[in-house]
Simulated assay, not measured.
Amino acid sequence: MTAIQVGGQPLTLLPERAAFLADHRTLLIADAHIGKAVSFRRWGVPVPQGTTAETLGALDRLVHRTGASRIVFLGDFLHSARSRAVSTMDAVRRWRESQPQLALTLVRGNHDRRAGDPPSAWRFEIVDEPLLLDGVALCHHPKPMPGRYVLAGHLHPCVGIGGRARDHLRLPCFHFGPQVGVLPAFGSFTGMHPIEWGEGDRVFAIADDEIAEVARR
């Protein structure tokens, strides 16, 4: 785990590609994209099985390890309307029933508007961005906001490590600029996009169970 300060708040970066606002006992999860694999399979694309179970299992472990009382999803909880397969919806319902004490909030992202809101039985608080929490604004889209530090998702950031092409690795990362911080995509079946660094930005790469700050080249 790595601790930094954003918007006057301590923020713990977690190698599971999530972040924790300890003062609020709140986990921040960006881009879960539940049901993305089943959406692809419905188009006839062969993709891995079990990605929803993997994502929900990771959530369980994070809640247990951090003692979180709330999860805020920073957009794109469900991937698409095609994600609402019976097996996917049943898996999320069972996960929710196993965590009845958790407060769940979804800050709508672009995929949520196409996929639709989670069923009311899942007891989500559903809001449009921004969700203001002391000195930070919790959003899906990484756009600056006067007077607040924005924490967002949407971009699925990664950073290149290594030199020559065959030794080059792309690792998911946290990317913090002067006004906006972007979390890596949490879902187990999501793509990644290289970041564009600005002067003074801080970037933290994730490799297995470790987080390391990366120097700007």
Rank of each mutant, 00 (worst) to 15 (best):
G8W: 09
G44L: 00
F40L: 14
F204I: 02
R123S: 03
R70L: 04
L74E: 01
E54W: 03
G187W: 04
V72P: 01
I161H: 02
P48E: 05
G191N: 13
L11F: 11
K36C: 04
R42L: 15
S80P: 13
A91N: 05
S120V: 15
L78H: 12
L56V: 06
V72C: 06
F204C: 08
K143A: 08
P157Q: 11
G162A: 01
C158Y: 00
S188D: 11
I211Q: 00
S69A: 14
M1N: 07
G57L: 06
D31M: 05
D209I: 10
A22L: 11
L183D: 02
F73K: 09
S87W: 07
T26H: 09
H193V: 15
V47A: 05
A103L: 12
A53C: 04
A215I: 14
L133T: 04
I211G: 00
G50C: 03
S39A: 10
S188K: 15
R148F: 06
P10M: 03
R42A: 14
G57H: 07
D112R: 02
A53K: 02
P118S: 02
P184Y: 09
A58N: 08
E129H: 14
Q5F: 01
T190W: 11
R123D: 08
L171N: 14
H156N: 13
P119T: 02
H79F: 04
H33F: 01
L14I: 06
L74N: 06
H111D: 02
D128F: 00
G198Q: 14
D128N: 13
L27F: 01
D128M: 11
E129C: 09
V182K: 00
R96I: 07
G162W: 01
L171G: 05
D167T: 15
P172G: 14
I211E: 00
F176H: 05
D90P: 05
P146G: 12
R94W: 12
G163L: 07
F77T: 03
Y149H: 11
D117E: 10
R96M: 00
A22Y: 12
V214H: 15
